[in-house]
């Protein structure tokens, strides 16, 4: 029996389940290594060389280099792990979250101040807004 996934019809959302976790193991463990200041410094000095120390896929490495968080998540990254890359770059969680929405930083911030993204039209894929 395959995994029961009742959450695949939620729009714009990837649930970090067992399959994603297996796919993203090395990507996420690389992120985890950035909790140490000396590793952050080494990564910043030569990102590509640092990434090459990890058995990640080439796609995962390119997604990290491009800071494409949506792509990182599609390749098994989890946001709490990926946040360590943002922290290394000096980014806030709001900047990171906003970067995945196609909105500018200001637009995203203003949306949050205005009460956030509405749930209406955002429950099911293909739902009419």
């Amino acid at each position: 029996m395959s995994l029961d996934k009742p959450y695949t019809d939620v729009p714009g959302t990837t649930i970090f389940d067992a399959e994603m976790s297996r796919q993203g193991y090395h990507l996420n463990q690389f992120c985890m290594s950035l909790m140490k200041a000396e590793n952050r410094a080494r990564f910043k000095a030569d990102e590509r060389a640092y990434l090459d120390e990890w058995p990640m896929t080439e796609d995962q490495k390119l997604a990290v280099l491009a800071r494409d968080l949506n792509r990182c998540i599609a390749l098994g990254g989890n946001i709490y792990f990926l946040a360590k890359i943002g922290a290394t770059d000096g980014k806030s969680f709001q900047q990171m979250a906003g970067s995945m929405t196609g909105m500018s930083e200001d637009e995203y911030r203003n949306m949050m101040v205005g009460g956030g993204r509405s749930i209406e039209g955002n429950r099911y894929i293909g739902e009419k807004k």
């Binding site: 979250a97 956030g116 993204r117």
Partner: peptide, 11 residues
């Protein structure tokens, strides 16, 4: 929600 295009969701 902190991830993906639906980030920023509040209900």
């Amino acid at each position: 929600q902190l991830q993906g295009p639906r980030a920023g969701l509040i209900n």
